[in-house]
Amino acid sequence: MSQPKIACLILACGNTLRGDDGVGPWLADWAEEHFGDEPRVHIISRQQWTPDLAADLAGAETVLFLDCSVESIPGEIKLRAIEPAQLKPGIATHHTGAAELLALARELYGAAPRNSLLLTIGAGSTEFGETFSPVVAAAMPEVQRLLRDTLSTLLG
């Protein structure tokens, strides 16, 4: 952990072959296109978040998680702060959520981003396919605007 910290880590999650589940990776690609030249931003896109990403989190000042949500209303956009989870019995180990990753970063490396945000869009459909449902497609301009604004804020 002697390397200088990344100002903002964008960490996306999703499967681009499962409809709206691919919204995280899609936004990561969009961010790469628009902020790829910004050296303070580092973008990682995965089908699922796994414990090894804790090391990346430990090396970041701030993190913006991008994911779809099956719990939200389809098309609903949510941006919220995330706190590290408690590492208690019953915690899931195969798919690691944002809060668990933050906890792992803290436990393993004694460091976690000072500001952690999770941006989600409610999934309309996660059936096989590489296109978004109409409700998610309609929400994309707003999501992009929010992503841009959030990134500006995180970078100060």
């Binding site: 590492l87 180990t93 436990e107 490396y109």
Partner: peptide
């Protein structure tokens, strides 16, 4: 599970992740 290992043996947890 791995989180239990991390809590009990953090250095080994780090080794596994690394």
């Amino acid at each position: 599970h791995i989180f239990g290992v991390v809590a009990a043996k953090p250095e080994l947890g780090r080794a596994g992740v690394a």
